[in-house]
């Protein structure tokens, strides 16, 4: 089984409190916030590696659209165990909404398939990215490719060519089975992603990582980036969430005093 995993490097979600908007330029300032592999994409990669390791003649390819400076995050995916990787990187791709992003990714998938002379049986992605969190891209990639898609996949098994999965909905768990090609977007509880070890890092250096710019992709500029995006951004605001932060009790109070103070706030609020 040939599996492709979509991966997005994102600003570390643990550090989002450090992100702010510059009062002069009104632009986002994310200085000092490191880039990491989007957390649920690691779950998608782990799911792919587990399937590959259980099935003969299986491969895991990673594909990402990102600036070239995040190349080392793609190498990290190879160190986790992916067989090869493709990074789509061009200034023209920047500023894209999910529509224009998914278009480039879908074209990237077609080009990888053409290079390799195969069709991916399964395309896995994290259900949503930590930064934009739209959950659009996996679905939209599938729509461009005209293949099936199912999101919020919390359990996945492949037996021979039959794909069995469970999707979590608000009030029910939905079981599906079928055959690829399909894009499945996985949630964080599907597995615990493996850590990168020293051996993985050594091996990653020898694995193929191909970087394609739009000179390689040859996509029409009008379909890319901000210009190719049907949504357009307006102003950014940082909502004011600050509150008074008054001490609940005085400095020398005990935990029991704090409990009494909490009760008194509850009573005053009528709960």
């Amino acid at each position: 089984m040939n599996i492709l995993v979509l991966v997005k490097p994102v600003p570390d979600p643990e550090k989002y409190n450090e992100i702010r908007i510059d009062s002069q330029t009104k632009r986002l300032v994310r200085e000092g916030v490191p880039t990491v592999i989007n957390p649920t994409d690691r779950n998608a990669l782990e799911a792919a590696l587990q399937i590959r390791d259980a099935m003969e003649d299986s491969t895991v390819t990673v594909l990402s659209m990102a600036p070239e400076f995040s190349r080392d995050k793609i190498v990290e995916c190879l160190a986790m165990g992916a067989d090869d990787a493709y990074l789509l990187s061009d200034r023209a791709f920047g500023g894209a909404d999910t529509y224009a992003t998914s278009y480039v990714l879908a074209e990237g998938i077609k080009k990888v398939e053409a290079e390799k002379g195969l069709m991916f049986d399964l395309i896995l992605a994290g259900n949503e990215s930590a930064d934009g969190a739209t959950a659009h891209v996996p679905v939209q990639v599938a729509e461009w490719l005209k293949i099936s898609h199912i999101s919020r996949v919390c359990s996945l098994n492949v037996e021979d060519e039959l794909i069995k999965l469970v999707k979590r909905s608000e009030d029910v768990m939905l079981s599906f089975q079928g055959e690829g090609p399909a894009v499945l977007a996985v949630t964080r509880d599907i597995n615990k992603p493996r850590f990168v070890n020293a051996m993985g890092i050594v091996k990653a250096r020898k694995k193929p990582l191909t970087i394609w710019s739009n000179e390689d992709m040859k996509l029409e500029e009008s379909r890319l980036g901000l210009e190719g995006s049907p949504t357009q951004p307006g102003e950014l605001i940082a909502p004011h969430m600050g509150r008074a932060g008054e001490p609940l009790v005085s400095g020398d109070a005990t935990a029991a005093d704090a409990a009494k103070a909490i009760l008194s706030v509850m009573r005053k609020a009528g709960v």
Partner: peptide, 8 residues
């Protein structure tokens, strides 16, 4: 942390 206006 950030809210953005989106237009179509």
């Amino acid at each position: 942390k950030v809210i953005g206006e989106i237009f179509v």
